Simulated scan of single mutants.
Amino acid sequence: MLFGKKKNKKSSNIAMMDSKVNEDFVEEKVTKIKDEDVELVMDNEEAISKKLSSASPLKKYKELGKIMFAMLKDVKNGTYPNMPWFTIATVAVALLYILNPMDLVPDFIPGVGYIDDLAVLSIGMGWIETDLHKYLDWRLAEEKEA
């Protein structure tokens, strides 16, 4: 297991039809991520970015998606080596989940199709917020030096 269970974990359940997206669901997916899955995210950057841009409920995550892709690229090419695997795996799960049109609530269902995508993004971002801020601080410092 990549990480231990969190103590006193509050479950962020978001009910959707007959299914629930919660922290346990996302955590289970994160623990199963492999290097090949991260490569799959990188190979599908354009499709994921397009979905973030074109799906009305996901548009506010467009910039966040750009940051996550930049972070993965910097980790992959070794310019930012300080990223825990848990954070990389969480980003991969969130972006792969968005890419998948047939997830817990299929995206083509009007009004509710993106609720589960938003839930997975929100849960994941809550877990890695600190690492995202560290990465952005590092990027700003790098830009000042250049």
Rank of each mutant, 00 (worst) to 15 (best):
L132Q: 07
D37F: 09
E143A: 13
N100A: 01
L132K: 08
E129Q: 13
D137T: 11
A94F: 12
T79G: 01
M42C: 04
D117V: 00
L95K: 12
M71Q: 10
M83N: 10
Y135L: 00
W127S: 09
S122L: 09
V120N: 01
D117K: 13
M71A: 08
A70H: 11
M42E: 07
E28I: 06
E142M: 13
T130V: 10
I67A: 07
I123H: 01
L121H: 08
M42L: 15
K5R: 15
S122Q: 14
K7E: 15
T79A: 04
P101G: 00
T130N: 11
E145R: 15
G124E: 04
D116G: 05
L140P: 09
Y114M: 03
D24G: 02
F69S: 03
K66F: 08
E143W: 12
E129R: 14
M71I: 09
I123D: 03
T79V: 08
E142P: 08
Y114S: 06
A70P: 03
S56H: 13
D117I: 00
P106R: 02
K6H: 08
E142I: 03
L136R: 13
I48F: 10
S53N: 14
E45D: 09
S53D: 11
I98E: 06
L140C: 10
K66A: 10
N77L: 01
E143R: 14
G126I: 02
L95R: 13
E23P: 00
P84T: 00
H133G: 00
N77A: 04
D137Q: 12
K60E: 06
K144A: 12
G113S: 08
L2M: 13
Y135G: 03
T130G: 08
L118M: 07
L96M: 12
I88S: 06
K59S: 05
P81A: 09
S19D: 11
A119Y: 03
M71G: 04
I14K: 12
H133Q: 07
I67H: 05
F25A: 04
K6S: 07
E45H: 11
K73H: 13
K32H: 05
M71L: 15
D24C: 04
K32T: 02
L95M: 15
L121R: 09
I67W: 03
K6F: 01
I109S: 05
S122V: 05
W138S: 01
G78I: 13
V21Q: 05
G4Q: 13
K59C: 05
K66Q: 10
K59W: 06
D117Y: 09
D24R: 10
D117A: 01
K59I: 04
T90R: 07
I88H: 04
K20R: 07
L52D: 09
V91F: 05
K134Y: 02
T87H: 06
K62N: 11
